[in-house]
Simulated assay, not measured.
Amino acid sequence: MVAEVRGDHPDESAALRAVAQKLDIGPAEALRNWGKRDEIDSGQRPGMTAEESAQIKAMKKKIAELKRANDILKAAASFFAAKLDRPHTRS
């Protein structure tokens, strides 16, 4: 919509404000950000796409899970190593 009405306004900011008002969207900056996101996702502007961002977020979550699992395994290994090192006493 912003691209469609851009010629009717003196600059992009005015076009953004007009469309934001027409769509009852809070600040026009939100509309500007959506436009930038669309340009990045469509390859018209450099940057990280929404898909790439989601993949990185998922990978970071998986790495955190693996680190927690690794810490648990290290603790278990230490526990069992200590058990093996202690002499068995019978009562």
Results as ranks from 00 to 15, higher is better:
residue 55 Q to T: 00
residue 5 V to Q: 01
residue 30 A to V: 07
residue 34 W to L: 05
residue 4 E to Q: 12
residue 53 S to P: 04
residue 18 A to T: 11
residue 9 H to R: 06
residue 13 S to A: 11
residue 88 H to V: 14
residue 36 K to N: 13
residue 50 A to C: 14
residue 89 T to C: 01
residue 77 A to N: 03
residue 41 D to L: 08
residue 21 Q to M: 02
residue 69 A to S: 06
residue 70 N to M: 11
residue 2 V to L: 09
residue 74 K to G: 03
residue 26 G to M: 06
residue 46 P to V: 08
residue 8 D to P: 00
residue 6 R to D: 04
residue 18 A to H: 14
residue 83 K to S: 05
residue 13 S to P: 03
residue 30 A to E: 08
residue 27 P to F: 10
residue 71 D to F: 06
residue 77 A to L: 03
residue 53 S to A: 10
residue 12 E to Y: 03
residue 33 N to P: 01
residue 15 A to I: 13
residue 3 A to W: 13
residue 51 E to L: 15
residue 29 E to A: 14
residue 39 E to W: 12
residue 70 N to Y: 08
residue 10 P to E: 05
residue 10 P to N: 04
residue 12 E to A: 08
residue 54 A to G: 06
residue 78 S to A: 07
residue 4 E to D: 10
residue 85 D to I: 06
residue 20 A to E: 05
residue 86 R to V: 00
residue 49 T to M: 06
residue 24 D to H: 10
residue 91 S to K: 15
residue 13 S to I: 15
residue 75 A to H: 07
residue 59 M to N: 03
residue 30 A to N: 08
residue 38 D to M: 04
residue 9 H to Y: 11
residue 87 P to E: 15
residue 5 V to I: 07
residue 41 D to Q: 08
residue 52 E to M: 00
residue 62 K to Y: 06
residue 84 L to Y: 00
residue 45 R to H: 14
residue 2 V to C: 10
residue 74 K to E: 12
residue 52 E to F: 03
residue 76 A to G: 02
residue 82 A to T: 00
residue 24 D to G: 06
residue 12 E to Q: 07
residue 16 L to W: 11
residue 21 Q to T: 09
residue 28 A to I: 09
residue 75 A to G: 09
residue 77 A to W: 01
residue 80 F to V: 02
residue 79 F to E: 11
residue 20 A to P: 03
residue 64 A to P: 01
residue 13 S to C: 09
residue 47 G to Q: 09
residue 39 E to F: 08
residue 9 H to D: 01
residue 67 K to A: 11
residue 36 K to C: 07
residue 14 A to L: 06
residue 24 D to C: 04
residue 1 M to C: 09
residue 46 P to L: 08
residue 83 K to N: 02
residue 77 A to V: 03
residue 58 A to H: 01
residue 38 D to N: 04
residue 81 A to C: 05
residue 57 K to T: 15
residue 29 E to R: 12
residue 85 D to L: 14
residue 37 R to D: 04
residue 29 E to F: 12
residue 3 A to Y: 15
residue 14 A to N: 08
residue 8 D to T: 12
residue 60 K to Y: 09
residue 42 S to L: 00
residue 53 S to F: 05
residue 23 L to D: 09
residue 63 I to H: 07
residue 9 H to F: 13
residue 31 L to K: 13
residue 13 S to V: 14
residue 47 G to A: 08
residue 18 A to Y: 15
residue 35 G to L: 14
residue 68 R to G: 09
residue 49 T to K: 02
residue 42 S to W: 02
residue 44 Q to V: 01
residue 62 K to G: 04
residue 76 A to Q: 10
residue 52 E to S: 01
residue 28 A to C: 07
residue 51 E to G: 09
residue 73 L to W: 11
